[in-house]
Design a binder for these strands. Structure first.
Lengths: 231, 231
DNA sequence: AACAACTTCTCTACGCTGTAGACTTTACGC
DNA sequence: GCGTAAAGTCTACAGCGTAGAGAAGTTGTT
């Protein structure tokens, strides 16, 4: 009979921990999507009874919150650019890449806060907000303006990510744009513009599109709200 | 024993229809949230066996898609403003109000397209896209530019809506801002900015914030991409 | 070495879910 | 009135989240 083996031997029995659980959950989520992430399945993945998970997350919703927290930790806000615009730019691209790395997490990222009052959210998910506010205030913005900038910025950023993640391909084998995107299904009479745009849609460049948006937004913000030049 | 009563008597037996089903689903969703919207519960609400619903939606996911479609139909794109900027402004505010009217639908609106390739989405959800493209092209934009404008615009708009819907109140009875938002729970040392901003956060004006964002975005877009002045 | 106290993990069970497949009831054209 | 097709129902199944009680494992004290 096999006994303890309590070492950190790859996939086998060692003491669980919140981090282990969340990491496994994220892995499963990345690999097979939200529906596959059930307590039973996750337990199985960890070689444990599903019930043991409840030691590390109060329930499934809390588990999902934990995963979003874990993912947001991959995002480093601090940077030593002196320029606030440059910092926001870098963060935006970082977040975009994060989203592309964990597309199945994006619905959670976007949706979970809708059912949790600001003050009750996991701290890890509030940290980016706090840090960006800090960044802006340090750059010379008044607190109120910093909040406005944050809102416009984050709103745009989340919107962009959602947009980009929707640009989906039906049939990657196909090289005719209309078919690749499945747009041939649309009645030509009702959707002439969309169908005509198939080739343009098919070669979407997310990073470039994000940059253009940021150009507009940041220069617009700068024109309207100037940081008085030292804190 | 009570027999047919096939009339349209308020809540009682008449022939079902897709519209009846979807409308009831939306009502339930609005009233009690996504979790309450189960096939069994909806059947009960309609006084029918849950299985009968499958005549009108292939499965639960399709039902949800149907609901988002239904909601998006409340949005009228066509307007007779001559000015594309004014039109986009009006649509933005309309969509915002729509979201406030059906907050529980927003997660669906935002999330369902992430798991459905563009070409396979319910036509009703693609119609706004087509119509806005039309609007922009009619205003003189080239098709490619129209798409860019659309993306920046819709991205920002969805972002704003998500932002606004997150600004949640914990305890509406309370009148101290910190407590209303539940921010007192945050460690003061780690979240000084956020805590200090409680009063500002507490009186968020969504419409105004949206307008400011639109000012920046639309003027930025106009500066970069000018419609050559007639089609 | 032995016991106690505490943490971690497992077992069993319940009520709920979506939905497949066979069946019955209803509506409608002739 | 009858045949056919549509609409609605019934039964059943596998899977879900999780409450509650108990077993197993770990740690500290003597």
């Amino acid at each position: 009979m096999d006994k303890p083996l309590t070492a950190t031997t790859a996939g086998t029995k060692s003491r669980l921990s919140r981090d282990l659980v969340l990491t496994a959950a994220l892995k499963l989520l990345d690999a097979e999507g939200l529906d596959a992430l059930t307590m039973r399945r996750l337990g199985q993945e960890l070689g444990r009874d599903p019930m043991s998970l409840y030691r590390y997350a109060a329930n499934r919703a809390a588990l999902l919150d934990g995963v979003t927290e874990l993912v947001l930790n991959e995002l480093a806000i601090i940077g030593d650019d002196r320029d606030w615009q440059a910092q926001l730019r870098r963060i935006a691209h970082d977040l975009r890449l994060l989203a592309l790395r964990h597309p199945n997490v994006v619905p959670l990222l976007v949706t979970r806060p809708l059912s949790t009052p600001l003050g009750l959210r996991p701290l890890g998910t509030l940290r980016p907000l706090e840090q960006i506010l800090s960044l802006l205030i340090d750059a010379g913005f008044g607190p109120g303006d910093a909040l406005h900038v944050y809102r416009a910025y984050y709103g745009f950023l989340y919107g962009h990510i959602l947009n980009e993640l929707q640009e989906f391909i039906v049939d990657p084998e196909e090289n005719e744009a209309l078919l690749r995107l499945g747009l041939h299904r649309l009645p030509a009479r009702e959707f002439p513009r969309l169908r005509a745009l198939a080739p343009v849609l098919a070669d979407y460049d997310g990073a470039a599109e994000l940059d253009q948006g940021l150009d507009i937004l940041l220069s617009g913000l700068a024109a309207r709200l100037t940081p008085r030049n030292n804190p």
